[in-house]
Every structure is written in C-alpha cells, then in structure tokens.
Amino acid sequence: MDKPQAPSFALLDLEGRTHRLEHYAGQLIWLEFWVTWCSACLDALPRKEVLYRTMQHPKVTFLTIDVTGREASPDRIVAFMKQSSFTFPVLRDEGTKVTDAYGVTSVPTTVLIDQQGRIHGRYDETVPLPQIISEIGKLLS
C-alpha cells in the first residue's frame, strides 16, 4: 500500500521562528500533536521530553505541534512550557489546520514521516512508546 505524502506546513514556534516541512527534507520526522489540558498528553509528555533529549540522531527531527484550535487559552502554552521545564520544540498549529491535514482526530498522536516525506504511521496514546521507537529503527536501517 502506498503511503501518502505528508502535507506541507509552515508553522511558528514559541520563539516566532517559522518551521516548514521542507526544512527537514531527507529526515525522519517525529510529529507529536498535543494540548495542555489533555491528561493523556500530560502523562506522555515527560517521556517524550526524555526521548527528545536522548534521541540526538542526525537523521531524526523531533517536533511537537500544539493544537491551538483545541486550547481553551492558546497563549498559556509559553507559561506551560516554562512550568514543565520541557525543552522540545513546540510549533503552534493555525487553529486545527495542520492537525486536520494530517488526519489527527485525538491527542496525543504521534505521526512518523519517513525520509521520502511520506506518512509512515499515526500512533495514538494506546501505542506503547517502544513500538514507535522500533518503527524509527526500522526506517533508519
């Protein structure tokens, strides 16, 4: 079965820098969709932070996307990140534009994009983290 091309995006991070999917051409990309009020997200984010800090591979890019259209107070994200001491990059969705383009219906959801820019898979909170990491290993080998 052919895997679909990942929809292009251009989103601002919390520092106001623009990130375009094209910037990461040839990379395996981990996109993590989440919101600040989601209990499953709050459970998973500390593990994703550890993953981000330890998974320093030259061919892997780890990005998170805050689904601003599902946030009660989208401006709270900066304070949330400081309080949590998370250091992973956070891009701000334009409402739910990118979330919808990627077919994400619940958070947290991880989307793996392969080195050819195709969506390799979507994983919700029921998929164990080691299984997603195993998929990365397969894509890198």
Rank of each mutant, 00 (worst) to 15 (best):
C38K: 09
H23P: 00
G69H: 05
V50N: 14
W34R: 04
Q116H: 12
G69S: 10
L139Y: 02
D75V: 01
T99G: 00
I29V: 14
C38M: 10
V90I: 14
F33Y: 02
E22I: 06
T99L: 01
D124Q: 03
T64M: 11
P58G: 07
L11N: 05
L21N: 01
T36R: 03
L51I: 02
A25S: 13
L112S: 10
L45Q: 12
I77F: 08
S134Q: 14
P46A: 12
I132H: 08
D124V: 00
E32P: 02
L91R: 00
K59R: 15
H57G: 10
H23K: 09
G26F: 06
D43C: 12
K97C: 07
T105Y: 11
S39L: 15
R122Q: 12
H120A: 14
Y24F: 15
F80V: 10
R118K: 13
G137Y: 03
S85I: 00
G16K: 10
Q83E: 15
T99C: 11
Q115A: 10
I136Y: 00
S106V: 15
L28C: 05
I136C: 05
Q115S: 13
P130N: 09
T105N: 12
S8G: 11
H19G: 01
T105G: 15
Q27K: 09
Q131W: 08
M55G: 00
C41L: 08
L112V: 15
K3P: 00
E32R: 12
R92M: 14
R17I: 09
S106R: 12
E22F: 03
V107A: 14
L42H: 00
I77K: 04
M1K: 07
L11V: 09
G95Q: 12
